[in-house]
């Protein structure tokens, strides 16, 4: 009985220890904030909500990488941004946009299971998040541990993405939506760069369509950046995005709507959409986008914005 009691006491001590860790400021286990949508009576809040809505629309840093993997496109380390320039980044602007670029690269490396190459990107992200005072959302020891264990790929992907999501939530709830806007801009630039680089070497209809679909996101990014254009750096980025928009304006996305179908499969509700979308994009347009995005990316990673 004494043994059982000791065992139970040890169990309780362990549980209390882990329970307490939920309330430390060092990890990202913060209690949820009340949703903004319920306090939408003031015009400032509505504007903030709309802004966040636009930021949410930028696709995940791993979606393009996932498409490349699905299409059996071989990994190419030349697509990954160098991290040599990170020490030279000082301003929040440069750190945030480069964080988006490297976040996308991290997703690409993770999905292709290139864990041995992850460490320099992870270290660079560590530096950037510390510069932005959001380092508490990244457990770098855990990331390093997962990166060196080939059986932890799913955990590595989850930890990376959830760290980014938690940081993003924190930035927005602390009136640093402008930093979030720059991170998603960096994600978009690097994702589009990746897709156009791959397409240049290997034409693929699905990748072409995905490049064209970036029109939806670009239009939102322009709306977001318009809010911050009084800042010279934001304005310069906005001008570059508007140059890209001129190309995208000629690309047409055609949608045909119809009713979805549903079924139950192994107890799971499955919805099959029957609406369609097609993208009318030419090789020339993709080449133009690739050229402009490369120029913009080089400015960012060479710290020229």
């Amino acid at each position: 009985m004494t043994k059982l009691l000791n065992l139970l006491l040890v169990s309780i001590a362990s549980l209390l220890f882990f329970a307490c860790s939920n309330f430390t400021t060092e990890d990202n286990d913060e209690t949820f904030l009340q949703s903004d949508s319920v306090i939408a009576s003031e015009s400032v809040e509505i504007a903030k909500e709309s802004m966040e809505d636009l930021i949410d629309n930028v696709s995940s840093p791993i979606e393009i990488a996932s498409l490349l993997l699905d299409e059996e496109i071989p990994f190419n380390k030349d697509y990954i941004a160098s991290t040599a320039h990170i020490d030279n980044l000082i301003t929040d602007f440069d750190c945030a946009i480069n964080l988006g670029v490297l976040g996308t690269d991290l997703g690409y490396l993770n999905l292709y299971d290139k864990t041995s190459s992850v460490m320099s990107t992870v270290s660079a992200i560590n530096d950037l998040t510390n510069n932005l005072n959001v380092g508490q959302f990244f457990d770098f020891d855990l990331l390093k541990q997962l990166a060196t264990n080939s059986n932890s790929l799913d955990s590595l992907v989850f930890t990376s993405i959830s760290s980014f999501n938690n940081m993003d939530d924190y930035l927005r709830s602390n009136n640093r939506t402008n930093v979030s806007a720059l991170i998603v801009s960096g994600v978009w630039i690097e994702s589009t760069y990746l897709a156009t680089q791959v397409y240049t070497e290997m034409e693929n209809k699905k990748i072409a369509e995905r490049i064209g679909e970036q029109k939806l996101i670009l239009n939102n990014l322009i709306l977001i950046l318009e809010n911050y254009k009084s800042n010279a750096n934001f304005n310069e980025l906005l001008v570059d995005f508007k140059t890209l928009k001129l190309i995208y304006d000629e690309i047409e996305i055609i949608t045909v709507d119809s009713e979805p179908e549903s079924k139950i499969e192994n107890g799971m509700l499955v919805i099959i959409q029957t609406s369609k979308s097609t993208v009318d994009i030419s090789n020339e347009q993709i080449a133009q986008i690739g050229l402009e995005v490369s120029k913009l990316r080089n400015k960012i990673i060479n710290n020229e914005v």
Binding site: N57, E209, E213, I271, Q273, S275, K276, S277
Partner: peptide, 26 residues
């Protein structure tokens, strides 16, 4: 409305659903 975790007529709470997307959109 495309999908819901809750089916009101039968009061069934699925807690999850899969969505096969055929239209890129927000």
């Amino acid at each position: 409305l495309v999908a819901s975790t809750y089916h009101t007529p039968s009061k069934t709470d699925f807690k999850a659903f899969e969505f096969f997307c055929s239209k890129t959109a927000i």
